[in-house]
């Protein structure tokens, strides 16, 4: 049963990612990326990570997609790419090298896994409940957690500074 759910969700994720790459309209791309993010959230649930399921839905599917949609619509950049293709011979080269990268990653992973990654040694259901993650965040990982808050503050200040500068520039 779990395998069926995994297969369907993985297919949705891959199809969403491919459709994001192929669609000409950037708004459609953002919505296909929402599909991809939601599928990955379901996979987190399958991997017994309910906390990350919620975080993925709130931060990625909620905040980040909305931010992307806002910017795409603000800039009117739905069809920013003109028809003339300047890539030329570089496009097949890019596809070939990406395929090589995929092959290489899979080869390195599967050739070097000597331990059996087939199934967990014990299958505890509650190794990463939100309670345990919260306890670890506020004890073992307290310093990284605080640094994260500084990063978010820096991003906030950076966005305000960027906007302030362009507002001052447009007044002149």
């Amino acid at each position: 049963m779990e395998f069926v759910v995994f297969t369907i969700t993985a297919l949705i994720a891959v199809v969403g990612a491919a459709a994001m790459l192929l669609s000409k309209n950037a708004v459609h791309s953002a919505l296909f990326m929402l599909l991809n993010f939601s599928a990955i959230a379901v996979l987190y649930l399958l991997l017994r990570a309910p906390f990350l399921f919620a975080v993925q839905l709130i931060v990625y599917a909620g905040a980040i997609i909305v931010l992307f949609l806002f910017v795409v619509m603000l800039l009117g950049a739905e069809r920013a790419e003109d028809e003339q293709d300047r890539l030329g011979w570089q496009r097949p080269l890019a596809l070939g090298m990406a395929a090589l990268l995929l092959f290489e990653v899979l080869y390195v992973f599967f050739a070097r896994t000597n331990t059996s990654l087939t199934s967990p040694s014990v299958s505890a259901e509650d190794f990463a409940t939100p309670v345990k993650i919260g306890e670890a965040l506020f004890s073992t990982y307290l310093l990284p957690f605080e640094i994260t808050s500084v990063i978010l503050l820096a991003a906030l200040v950076g966005v305000v500074v960027l906007h302030h500068r362009q507002a001052a520039h447009s007044e002149q």
Binding site: V14, A17, A18, M20, L21, A26, S29, F68, V71, V72, L75, A77, A80, E81, R86, L87, Q90, R91, A94, L95, M97, A98, A99, L101, L102, V105
Partner: peptide, 15 residues
């Protein structure tokens, strides 16, 4: 890999 293909082949900065 699909992400890499997107970075290499699309020209819209948002995508």
């Amino acid at each position: 890999t699909l992400g890499v293909v997107g970075v290499l082949t699309r020209r819209n900065a948002l995508i």
